[in-house]
């Protein structure tokens, strides 16, 4: 056990994780515990989006550039579900409904995200897979870019370009943790991301379907040979990945109001993470979410808030030059082969 631990510490993953923890501790001592709190909150949500992206890469071999749009769909659905509930509450106050209204909105977003993902697989990817699997990586990537343009402009056409946001999900005084004031919404967003990540982890590790998803990502022919219904798993994976992005979007609605290109930042951050940890590495994406969040928080803190895209991008360039398979190594052979 200790032997394995030492070996892990010397691997690229171990070094990076330990270095991140060290950095976080130093920064916390230097500037105060709010660094840790901010990292945890941003990291949880980034991890949700990145895990979905990693799933699509690992299982479907799709380099998705439309993933941010499912985040957008999440914000949109949450807005249109939560606002009427809020208006209703203004005239008929009810503490119980006030408690559960945000949950209803987020749940609706999760369902809508899953439906949108399943529809995308059925209407876009499945027909293309039937047509030809030649040049799959490039073709599917181009399809996702086109789909992103379509969805962004669809939003613009139907819902307009205004910011559709809410002030807050939960009223009430902020909570104090480690001398840091955290709004209830932020705290809830963090808790939700942790719960969803844990549930997702347990699902992937212990259930039959979770194992089947991992099997498909590791060997598609092998998964057919053991009797896995590939098309059903692909639809389910797409629904799951998109649902995670929609949940992230919905629970961050108080921070990011819904507008056509709201998903782009989430998309870029998720790509930073999956490139950093290795394409399609699902477990790595969870850790990577917190590492990129820390990087963002530290950049804002020490360099300036305008730089929070520059530093991660510079890091990605370094990773691509020196360790192109990512610091955790990649499980995806298909993407790398082509």
């Amino acid at each position: 056990m200790s032997d394995r631990f030492i070996r892990w510490c010397r691997s690229a993953a171990g070094v990076t994780i330990l270095l991140s923890i060290l950095l976080a501790v130093i920064a916390t001592i230097d500037r105060g515990p709010y660094i840790l709190v901010n990292t945890a909150i941003t990291g949880g949500m980034l991890a949700l989006v990145a895990v979905g992206l990693a799933l699509l890469l690992g299982v479907m071999n799709v380099a998705s550039f439309v993933h941010g749009e499912y985040f957008m769909i999440g914000t949109l659905v949450a807005y249109y579900v939560f606002t009427p509930l809020q208006n209703f509450l203004n005239t008929n106050p009810s503490p119980l409904l006030a408690m559960v209204a945000p949950l209803i909105a987020i749940l609706a977003a999760a369902v809508a995200g899953a439906a949108a993902g399943a529809l995308t697989e059925i209407m876009v990817f499945a027909p293309m897979r039937r047509r030809s699997r030649e040049n799959w990586v490039m073709n599917s990537f181009l399809l996702t870019v086109g789909l992103a343009v379509l969805l962004i402009n669809g939003h613009l056409l139907i819902f307009g370009a205004d910011f559709k946001g809410i002030v807050r999900y939960w009223a009430g005084a902020p909570v104090t943790i480690m001398d840091v004031f955290i709004s209830r919404d932020r705290l809830f967003a963090f808790l939700l991301s942790i719960i969803v990540i844990l549930a997702f982890w347990v699902f992937m590790k212990t259930t039959r379907t979770g194992r089947a998803i991992r099997a498909v990502s590791q060997d598609e022919t092998g998964s057919l040979m053991v009797g896995i219904n590939l098309s059903a798993i692909l639809i389910f994976t797409m629904a799951l990945g998109c649902s995670l992005a929609a949940v992230a979007g919905a629970s961050l609605l108080f921070l990011y109001p819904s507008y056509p290109t709201v998903g782009l930042e989430a998309l870029y951050m998720a790509w930073f993470i999956v490139i950093l940890v290795g394409l399609g590495n699902i477990i790595g994406a969870l850790t990577g979410g917190f590492m990129v969040a820390l990087l963002k928080v530290l950049t804002v803190e020490y360099i300036g808030s305008g730089w929070d895209f520059v530093v991660p991008t510079a890091l990605i360039i370094l990773v691509l030059i020196f360790k192109p398979s990512g610091i955790f190594g990649s499980e995806v052979r298909g993407v790398l082969d082509q």
């Binding site: 194992r211 089947a212 991992r214 099997a215 590791q218 060997d219 022919t221 053991v226 499980e331």
Partner: peptide
Amino acid sequence: NLFTNMSVQENLLM
């Protein structure tokens, strides 16, 4: 066509 990132036991379960 084994599942290379799964253990022996998980492969058999699959």
